[in-house]
Design a protein around this nucleic acid. Structure first.
Lengths: 164, 164
DNA sequence: GTTAGTGCAAACCTTTTGCAGCTCT
DNA sequence: AGAGCTGCAAAAGGTTTGCACTAAC
């Protein structure tokens, strides 16, 4: 919860817990799910209309630097913005459906194994790790097959985007 | 090599192999290493001074959509730009030193295991995957220890950035 | 000849910076 | 009191778009 995050953040000498940071920390912790800066800003403004977008960015940067949140792109499924989530005890991968945008989280021993192997193999000291997997969820696989059945008769194919 | 990439790209009906795309494909394939759009643009301009930055972005977008290149952030070690590498047969993780920026590539069975488990567990059809690990290489671990020895006496600590 | 791709300029979107004033400790 | 933080405005950095012209097929 927010208090825990706040405490950790405050451990650094000279870091202050301001009204704005309280609001942002609460939002990040509560809505546990992957927020981007803009969404967080929108939510924060509902609690404090004066709170500035810049403050959101600065706070996220601070939390990231302190290792309190992790930054994700979620395969840029919706654009190039970044998403944030509070650092969890257990490492996990994000599995993003490229069609519906649904996000699943995968916890499994391969992640730990990989971590160990990288540390051993390179003598590397891991600070943060990020695994993102894009593809199609079981639901969308079916829908895509249908879409492509139709599309095949008309024009498009999966990888062929005519948008350039 | 470029020809292979070109061929694949050309499979889509109506996609044309232009002089500019040849240049870009050659560069991406040759310099095998993680280029960002700007660097690629610089290199391309040496071969064709008229070639535009926009064309670089458009080409990268096309290649990405076609699954010919993978997009990486390399933990945003140098900024928020994206890096590109030609899709390799074998999946691998990128291990980035946050101090010196050196990049290692890790190939290991945990990556395949994870892929299998995600497919099995979620019934997910994986299209692309990306694993990035940030931390300190064996060399920089030593240097950081020294730096911090000095820093401790003066002001800073690892996680505490005074840059906001 | 048709249609995709290019170059250019401008728009866009998100993040960063400089600075004066405010506020937490 | 004083360092740290905020808001505002402006800049920066990178990507995208509209459009007329060019070139690949």
């Amino acid at each position: 919860m927010a208090l825990e995050v706040a405490k950790k953040s405050l451990k650094d000498p000279g870091v202050r817990m301001t009204r704005q940071r309280k609001i942002l920390l609460d939002l990040i912790d509560q809505s546990g799910e992957h927020l981007d800066a803009e969404r967080l800003f929108t939510l924060a403004q509902q609690k404090d209309p004066k709170l500035n977008r810049v403050t959101v960015c600065r706070t996220l940067k601070l939390l990231k630097a302190g290792g309190l949140v992790d930054e994700l792109d979620l395969m840029h499924h919706k654009g190039d913005q970044h998403y944030y989530e509070t650092r969890m005890k257990q490492e996990h991968a994000h599995v993003i459906c490229l069609r519906c945008g649904r996000i699943e989280e995968f916890f499994g021993d391969p992640l730990q194994k990989m971590r160990e192997q990288i540390e051993d193999h390179f003598g590397f000291q891991i600070v943060l790790a990020r695994t993102e997997v894009g593809g199609y969820c079981s639901h969308c696989q079916v829908l895509r097959a249908q879409e492509m059945g139709n599309a095949a008769a008309s024009s498009g194919r999966p990888g062929s985007r005519r948008t350039l």
